[in-house]
Design a protein around this nucleic acid. Structure first.
Length: 330
DNA sequence: AATTCAAGCAACCGCCTAGCT
DNA sequence: CAGCTAGGCGGTTGCTTGAAT
């Protein structure tokens, strides 16, 4: 199968476009329309290959292109569409008027992908990650524990370090359990956590961090009753996406969730997930430490304890193979 | 003020496919 | 049906810019 000549063959210009080149291209297309891209450069008086002209026009010069920051709605839509379509940027772009596939792709790779990774969400599958990258947080957690030693007794410091290691393990197990108990469809709970009321760029981070932090704290409390609540809070804070600061409660649920209806909802059930259910941001509010009644806390702790009850005899070296076997059998 | 580093983004590359001959 | 071409797409590169040291 033949391939068109490369743009750098025949001495054609490459690299950034000048204003004069842009003007020539715009003027030509304004007069004659797009037509044949291979012939266009010659007719328009450009020393470029047709491919380069097409790219410049579709990604930059087209009059209907919307430039500037992505809106909350656009961000939400991209996340939703990517969960369904994957890296089909052109398909995604057709749903965002004025945005090009290239722009969306760049925005995904430089912003959204990074955010999801920071939150432990796999940007490809939109599911919690189960790899061992989380262990990369070990040094910072231990640092937190060591800092704690400045104001605590040696015993407390050692306890904090032990708890930090334990917490990391628990995080991995949580992710594993959630992955195994969720369907393979996109994580729509995650999508719901976007709501227009919250400040841009913090909405998803805060909501997920709150969920993660709270569940970590409750689980850790149930498994390490000897640790002080303050110490545990210190450690769970260090898991938040903004590097250890306490995160604000999740935003109120959005009234406008019409976009949800476009995708079948197959979110995780509440009976098997170790995470507190996050069917809406409101549910996060309701289980926040400030809002949770003692009975609710006890109930949640009880269910979590029950979840882990059978694991009490695991040895201190954290038998991964055994855990995976147990999860697979459950 | 100079240098280094990282993030963002425009542009390119190579592959694929539809349509034409 | 095979070969060719143009257009389209996704992945990647490398330049620019601003922040950090």
């Amino acid at each position: 199968m033949g391939r068109p000549p490369r743009c750098d063959e025949f001495g054609l210009k490459k690299g950034p476009w000048t204003r004069e080149e842009d003007k020539k291209l715009k003027d030509y297309i304004g007069k004659h329309g797009q037509g044949n891209w291979q012939r266009l450069p010659k007719l328009a008086g450009l020393n470029r290959c047709g491919k380069s002209c097409r790219l410049r026009w579709t990604n930059y010069l087209r009059p209907d292109i919307k430039r500037g920051e992505f809106t909350d709605e656009e961000e939400k839509l991209i996340l939703q569409l990517h969960a369904v379509l994957g890296n089909k940027w052109s398909a995604i772009a057709t749903r965002l008027p004025g945005r090009t596939d290239n722009e969306i792709k760049n925005y995904w790779n430089t912003n959204m992908r990074k955010k999801l990774l920071q939150m432990g969400i796999d940007p490809v599958t939109h599911q919690p990650r189960t790899d061992l990258n989380l262990l990369a947080t070990m040094p910072s957690l231990l640092t937190v524990a060591n800092l704690g030693s400045l104001t605590s007794s040696l015993d407390n410091s050692l306890q904090l370090q032990a708890d930090a290691a334990h917490l990391i393990k628990l995080q991995l197990v949580q992710n594993l359990v959630q992955l195994l108990t969720c369907s393979a469809t996109p994580n729509l709970d995650l999508l719901r956590l976007f709501g227009p009321a919250a400040p841009r760029n913090h909405r998803l981070n805060d909501a997920l961090a709150s969920t993660r932090q709270l569940s970590s704290l409750v689980i850790l409390q149930s498994l390490t009753p000897t640790a002080s609540r303050e110490g545990l809070q210190h450690l769970t804070n260090s898991l938040s996406v903004d590097g250890g600061e306490a995160v604000a409660p999740a935003p109120a649920p959005a009234d406008d969730m019409s976009w949800e209806n476009t995708v079948e909802d197959k979110s995780c059930g509440t009976d098997t997930s170790v995470f507190p259910t996050s069917n809406s941001a409101a549910s996060l509010d309701s289980v926040s430490p400030e809002n949770m009644s003692r009975s609710e806390t006890t109930s949640l702790e009880g269910s979590i304890s029950a979840t882990f009850e059978d694991w009490d005899d695991l040895d201190n070296d954290f038998g991964w193979a055994e855990i995976l076997d147990r999860i697979a059998m459950s």
